[in-house]
């Protein structure tokens, strides 16, 4: 019974993984691809790990279940942060939005960031170069 529930959860997670990767192929620009793929694959992998945790707690091996839950927490914390960082880097490096995009909420803030003239690191390097 527990095993059936676990395999159903794993099956739904696999479907999410596959659909996220189809979105990575089909969508038009970086930002769309990043949001589709990241959300779907994060949820799918978390469901795979949850299914493994069910199998582990139902008698195979309790440490395996605990590790699966820890790993699910890590994936849930790190994957959206990584995708956000990449999208921010993509915008600041000048990748254009899809022409049919409706709203560009990060635009004014990006201009503000790019107009800041110096960075702390560059200033430090200038100081060390001076003498």
């Amino acid at each position: 019974m527990m095993l059936d529930v676990a395999w159903w959860i794993i099956g739904v997670g696999l479907a999410f993984d596959l659909l996220g990767c189809v979105g990575l192929i089909r969508l038009p620009d970086v930002y769309n691809r990043a949001q589709a793929a990241t959300k779907c694959v994060t949820l799918g992998t978390c469901m795979l790990l949850l299914g493994v945790a069910f199998v582990g707690f139902s008698g195979t091996s309790v440490p395996m279940g605990i590790k699966a839950l820890i790993c699910a927490a890590f994936v849930l914390l790190t994957s959206p942060v990584g995708a956000h960082a990449i999208c921010r880097g993509a915008y600041l490096s000048g990748v254009k939005l899809w022409p049919e995009s409706v709203e560009d909420a990060f635009g004014p803030r990006a201009d503000q960031i790019q107009q800041q003239p110096t960075q702390k690191g560059a200033a430090d390097r200038e100081e060390t170069k001076a003498p």
């Binding site: 997670g13 993984d17 996220g20 990767c21 990575l24 970086v30 691809r33 990043a34 793929a37 990241t38 694959v41 994060t42 799918g44 992998t45 795979l48 790990l49 493994v52 699966a68 790993c71 994936v75 994957s79 990584g82 995708a83 990449i86 999208c87 880097g89 993509a90 490096s93 990748v95």
Partner: peptide, 21 residues
């Protein structure tokens, strides 16, 4: 573009976690 490849590498890493489990 390069960010496309970076996003795909990130997704591939998450898929490998699924492979491991």
């Amino acid at each position: 573009t390069a960010p496309d490849r970076a996003v795909s590498i990130d997704i591939l890493g998450t898929l490998i976690v699924g492979f491991c489990c």
